[in-house]
């Protein structure tokens, strides 16, 4: 059993709480994007693309034992930073845990605008797609 989803969210909120201004926050986010585990090339397929208006996101999911494991990538680094956090929070959990999750950390760290910009970056669709995978695997 991994760390509970909400515990990871609290960790992220604490990490972002260290920064006073937006620039530091975004530098950290960009850093997370750069450190995102590379996606297996074979999974960067057309079927795995989530089309945003401006940048593409790739998402792959597989079941390992009871757990859903996600891999993802994006062309844009800020989106990648967001992806890195979403994977850290949701990957390696059971479908039931993923389906029951409420991603409140995004709002609390002040990044909800990236999920509100409908379609423009693919993140909203990515979160939905992660839920769909969880449902399909449950």
């Amino acid at each position: 059993m991994g760390q509970p989803i909400n515990e990871i969210q609290e960790e992220l909120i604490e990490e972002f709480g260290l920064f006073e201004d937006w620039a530091d926050k975004y530098e950290y986010l960009i850093d997370l994007g750069k450190k995102l585990a590379p996606m297996t090339d074979a999974f960067k397929t057309e079927e795995n693309v989530i089309k945003g208006c401006q940048s593409r996101v790739w998402l792959h999911a597989e079941k390992q034992g009871d757990l859903v494991v996600f891999q993802a990538d994006s062309e844009a680094i800020i989106v990648k930073g967001m992806i890195s956090m979403l994977i850290r929070v949701l990957s390696n959990h059971t479908p039931a845990e993923i389906l029951a999750s409420d991603l409140y950390f995004i709002d609390q760290i002040g990044m909800s605008q990236h999920l509100a910009q409908t379609r423009s970056n693919g993140l909203v669709s990515m979160v939905k797609q992660m839920q769909h995978y969880a449902l399909a695997f449950s």
């Binding site: 937006w22 620039a23 975004y26 401006q54 940048s55 062309e75 844009a76 680094i77 800020i78 989106v79 990236h114 423009s120 970056n121």
Partner: peptide, 13 residues
């Protein structure tokens, strides 16, 4: 090496 979207997001800040 920089995606335009990243530039747009940060300039907005």
């Amino acid at each position: 090496g920089v995606h335009p979207q990243d530039i747009g997001v940060l300039l907005d800040k």
